[in-house]
Each structure stands twice: as C-alpha cells, then as structure tokens.
Amino acid sequence: MDKIIGKVFITGDNIDTDQIIPAQYLNLVPTIPEEYKKLGSYALCGLPDEYKTRYVAEGKMETDYAIVIGGRNFGCGSSREHAPVSLGASGCKTVIANSFARIFFRNCIATGEVYPVETSEELNKSLKTGDEVEISFENMTLKELKTGKIHQLKNLGDVKSVIEAGGIFNYARKNKMI
C-alpha cells in the first residue's frame, strides 16, 4: 500500500485494548470469518462517553474513518490480537500515534491488519475527527486535504522488512526460516 486517503478519527493518550475491544467480545474468534467481521463492528466501542462520535456507527459493520490518530502509548494493556483485528476488520488502515505499546504494535505488524505509524507531532490535537487527509507511505507524510498542510511521519524502522513481506509468516518464508 502506497497511499491512503480518508477521514481521521481522533483519540487521546493511553488508549488501552479494553477501549479498543472490550473483554466481553473476546468470545469471538478472529480466524472465523463472520466473527472477524463482528469484531470490526465493535472496534473502539469501549471509548468513554465523552467521545461523542462512535468509531463504527450504531448498526454498522464498518467505520467511516480509515485513519485513527492517537497520542502516547496507543494499544496499551492486553496482548489480545482482537484489538488490531477489530480495527482492521472495521476498515481502519492505519493508526498514527506518538507512541505505541509494544504488544499492540507487534500484533499490527504480525497480522498486517493495520499500519502502526509514529509521529512526533501532536496530530491528535491539531486535527479533528472527520478531517480528510492523504497519507503517503512512500514519503511518510500526512497531508491535510483542506489546507494542503503536510506533516512528517516517522520511518517504520526495523519492522519495515516484516511489513513489506506481509507479516511474520511471509517474512519467515522469504528468509527460509519455515
């Protein structure tokens, strides 16, 4: 994937995995196709009521927001892969945050569900939910479509080779590990 054009959904610091996918939905198994879709419908439904806009509208299976913007420590808490899976299943393509919790980041890479991208700018303060942006993975930039303003994102670093291979299994096959 080179480019994503879509609307952003703004979140705060320390968005934990219980907020991304509350534990009562962990009875759903991500590798069962209809339950994968169902997980998508619950993505970010654990956010507190201060969030006036739901990430996935009531009664819908998919989100209108392909890009989630977070602050520090996005995805902290549980190792539940249901978290990146629910985002991916809902139609989220990338999460852009100031920092990620380790296991969530790793699960994004291993599954290939969403791209976890870091930024040093506080985009969750300067952008608003619903703003349209264009993300270029070639240049690692985020462009605000309304103003044309461009923000630099951080390079993917060590994990780039795993992402480019398409996840841990393809990476291992490419490197003759399996």
Partner: peptide, 29 residues
C-alpha cells in the same frame, strides 16, 4: 498469549506476552 505472561520472570526466566499470529508461528516452529 496473554500480556501478564511477564509474571513468570519472577522465576528467573524470560517470559513475555504475544498475539495469536506470533503464537501460531511459535506453535509450528
């Protein structure tokens, strides 16, 4: 496949939580 797997470091081992995909990989390899 649980983030609190780090508990077992209390016994002087390396223990860490991973997701399903990584665990599926470990299961096979």
């Amino acid at each position: 496949t649980d983030s609190h797997t780090c508990t077992h470091g209390a016994l002087g081992e390396f223990a860490t939580g991973i997701g399903n995909t990584d665990a599926g990989f470990v299961m096979g390899t």
